[in-house]
Design a protein around this nucleic acid. Structure first.
Lengths: 254, 254
DNA sequence: GATTGACCTTAACGTTACGTAAAGGTGTAC
DNA sequence: GTACACCTTTACGTAACGTTAAGGTCAATC
């Protein structure tokens, strides 16, 4: 059975443009070109296209699909497993993102209806509660009840503007960190800038700063799974890199 | 405080290209242009950029961000909530996708190591078990134990080739259905083709076909939440549309 | 034999949010 | 005067096609 572009397109449920594009990038060449320059596909191409579409539905890039379907010795299972890991990563990111959006909704809503300060106060309280629930016990053990109470007190006294600044400072620190990681050196200028931003960010929670406490916190980012997950979510290895940068910044090794 | 492109870029942690691009698309114009043609930004622009970056991190498109930050009367909360819905949808899709990839891995692995037929048999059995767990009771009530046992028996006797064909047929039916939905008419030629494909697909499970059973199954796709979710996952309303198409195809109303 | 209409071809722009040159002007420190 | 860091605009490249546009091919019909 031989097919022209449109016939094959109908059979497979794709557009003719798609077939021409696949020809163009060398993913699926027609069996032959007839005397009028028409693309003619055969059974082999039909089967190959079905395979391509299978992988396409799994959202592999055409580039990877090309390798899979054109090279029979290619390790398909490994490619799929790597792909699965990527998807799982993506889902993690997505979950974080959804949480962020929800927080922003809560914050923006609170802000719009803020006839008095109540709602914002409630929001800060919620943030404190969340933190206590997630990290409370370990942090209280490490830093002592008094320090944590003081930190919570500071949050309670934050104005909306300060709160926004704090959020944005953390964002800035994160993006600086991400750039620094690309270079790979925790002692680099940009990595040290990230550490400095982290210190600045801490000022929103700590009433007094000490290099030792800063270095210790950095170490905890690596040791405590929940902290590590938080930092590593955007980029694996972030927690460890941040710790190294802070240790250089403070001159103290945890 | 006034800033040139690079100063502002450093402050905000973005590239100068980004700032020029935001200027180009009218998202963030500099406060003024100096005599040499340099972009000069002021405090207002800094604040606006911070806002923009906040929304950018939430993965809103620059187009939507533009509307949000340039129009103070714009309903930010609603935009965020819609965005959240989109993200939740995306996550659902992603979960389906991951499940598909895992199935493909299982299938491909089984195929590579298939020294005898055991693994494939196990795979088919797993499929049957899954189906029984998910829909078993209701289907058995509707269609009777004998029919279901016959269907399961058919699956057990499937060869790998048949199994692949079945999977691809379902995929084809789904994409045809998706196209048909775009047109909106369950009586359209393409919708009827989807119904025909669905009948063809059924042949892998049913030993005898009847229009009544086909129409009844279609109705169940709408009535049963788990079926409906399965079909609606790719496109809301798919289950209902498929039912309508099948009812026209069979000439029977459930 | 000419026309119609369905099919085919290539070429090229548009989509998103910038990265990355290239080519050239500006500001200032030495 | 020149070196160097900064600024400008212009424009191509990215992924996977959708969408015209301009023009050839094929079979059927007049």
């Amino acid at each position: 059975m031989e097919y022209t572009v449109q016939k094959l397109a109908q059979l497979a449920g794709v557009s003719t443009r798609t077939l021409r594009y696949y020809d163009e990038i060398g993913l699926l060449k027609p069996a032959r070109i007839n005397s009028s320059g028409y693309r003619i596909y055969g059974q082999i191409e039909v089967d190959k296209l079905q395979q391509i579409l299978l992988y396409r539905e799994l959202r592999l890039s055409l580039d990877r699909i090309k390798k899979i379907v054109n090279d029979p010795s290619f390790d398909k299972v490994r490619a799929l497993k790597e792909h699965r890991e990527q998807l799982l990563d993506k889902r993690k990111q997505l979950d974080l993102l959804i949480a962020s959006v929800e927080k922003t909704i809560a914050f923006t809503e609170g802000r719009i209806n803020m006839t008095d300060k109540e709602k914002f106060e409630g929001f800060k309280q919620k943030m404190i509660d969340e933190n206590e629930k997630r990290f409370g016990k370990e942090i209280r053990e490490k830093y002592g009840d008094a320090a944590i109470d003081r930190s919570n007190e500071k949050v309670k006294n934050m104005t909306q503007e300060e709160y926004e600044e704090m959020i944005q400072l953390e964002r800035k620190m994160m993006s600086t960190l991400a750039e620094a990681i690309k270079l790979g050196d925790p002692g680099s200028e940009i990595a040290q800038k990230a550490a400095a931003l982290h210190k600045q960010w801490l000022a929103y929670f700590w009433s007094e700063y000490s290099k030792e406490a800063h270095a210790g916190l950095a170490q905890m980012y690596v040791d405590d799974e929940r902290f590590r997950e938080y930092y590593d979510a955007k980029q694996p290895g972030s927690a460890r890199f941040l710790r190294d940068a802070i240790h250089i910044y403070t001159g103290i090794k945890g």
